[in-house]
């Protein structure tokens, strides 16, 4: 039976494999190595220079889709069109900002036989940076002190217990470390111009960065959990190299997160270990991270398991993973014909 695998058509977004990469290309590589199915990959792109568009050995065809800010109906209309051409089985959205419309569309898409494996709206909202303090209290997880700011003037009245440096974060993306009020003000303006209000000001925890990526089945079971230590961090704070580790406490923390929230879908926990060895939860990303291909390297193909969960199959938790496997990211210049760029730019399809 193994030689005749079923073929699934899977649409994947986040093809921006740039210096601050989206996870799409990594997810696609994992799917192409899936043991339980073959894939036809449909890329979903926002801009015409997302590198994944031009990786024809990975992506079979790409369609441009409207930004989430265009509204749910516009996104649905476009997916409906793509579905009419490609007959999608599964969609894997990989941008935080996309999750809102796709979670809202889950039911409608399911009626069209398009499956997804996403957190619920409640899970998506409660883990939001804006609600991290509450989240920490509710699930007994240590989180750095943070406050949500809705207008520049409240920056001046930051609670006095805040110690510099602080991290200023946008609602969806962007984060930067600030050492004084002037820097906070600059960042406030920069981030709100792009991502809107509010912004989050979080006390900076000194220590080393660790991440866990994993997959929850929505019933409280951990299907996969892989702790990783960042070995090389770019200026933009992205891991350029990392290694799988065996830290028991990180695994426990992850199990506790999944079993309490009954998290459904992929996720990444960003953790900081301070000098006393305490783990602080900095952020919960409600989707797979850009380094998700490491999961294949350590023996737990998370994207494959996620697709099977999306299709409603019974997926057994992975038993083990290889410790000490590394990923080292690299940049790669592709040669692209201008006609291809022209086609995606003017027709929105390639």
């Amino acid at each position: 039976m193994a030689d005749h695998k079923r073929k699934l058509t899977i649409a994947v977004s986040g093809l921006n494999a740039i210096d601050s990469p989206g996870p799409g290309v990594a997810v696609i590589r994992a799917l192409r190595e899936a043991e339980s199915f073959d894939v036809r990959i449909i890329g979903l792109a926002y801009e015409s220079l997302e590198p994944g568009i031009f990786m024809h050995d990975l992506v079979d065809r790409t369609y441009q889709i409207p930004y989430p800010s265009a509204g749910i109906d516009a996104v649905f209309e476009r997916i409906d069109y793509i579905h009419s051409r490609e007959k999608l089985d599964v969609i894997i959205p990989n941008f935080d900002a996309e999750l809102y419309p796709f979670i809202r569309l889950e039911k409608r898409l399911k009626e069209m036989n398009i499956h997804m494996c996403l957190p619920t709206m409640e899970q998506f909202e409660e883990r939001h940076k804006v609600n991290l303090n509450e989240f920490g209290t509710r699930y007994n997880l240590k989180v750095p002190k943070s406050t949500v700011v809705h207008e520049l003037s409240s920056v001046y009245s930051l609670p006095s217990e805040f110690k510099y440096p602080v991290v200023v974060k946008g609602k969806y993306y962007d984060a930067s470390i600030c050492y004084n009020m002037e820097q906070i003000k600059t960042q406030f303006n920069k981030i709100t111009a792009k991502w809107g209000l509010p912004i989050i000001i979080q006390e900076f925890v000194h220590g080393s960065e660790f991440n866990v990526t994993g997959l929850g089945d929505g019933k409280g079971n951990t299907i996969s959990a892989i702790p990783m230590r960042k070995q090389y961090i770019t200026e933009k704070g992205k891991a350029w190299g990392g290694i799988s580790i065996s830290d028991k406490r990180m695994l426990e923390l992850t199990h506790s997160f999944i079993s309490q929230t009954k998290w459904k879908g992929g996720f990444e926990l960003e953790l900081m270990k301070d000098k006393n060895g305490e783990f602080y939860l900095l952020e919960i990303n409600p989707r797979m991270p850009a380094w998700i291909y490491l999961s294949v390297g350590v023996g737990q193909n998370i994207p494959e398991a996620l697709v099977r969960l999306a299709l409603g199959e019974d997926v057994k938790p992975f038993a083990e993973y290889r410790v000490g496997k590394m990923f080292v990211r690299f940049a790669w210049d592709m040669i692209v014909d201008m006609e291809e760029f022209q086609t995606i730019s003017t027709m929105g399809e390639l």
């Binding site: 926002y46 801009e47 220079l49 409207p66 930004y67 800010s69 265009a70 991502w195 809107g196």
Partner: peptide
């Protein structure tokens, strides 16, 4: 002019009808 950048809030935002 085509200016490629990563998703920003102003892209493709238009009411179709």
């Amino acid at each position: 002019r085509l200016e490629s950048e990563m998703p920003n809030k102003f892209g493709m935002k238009i009411d179709h009808f």
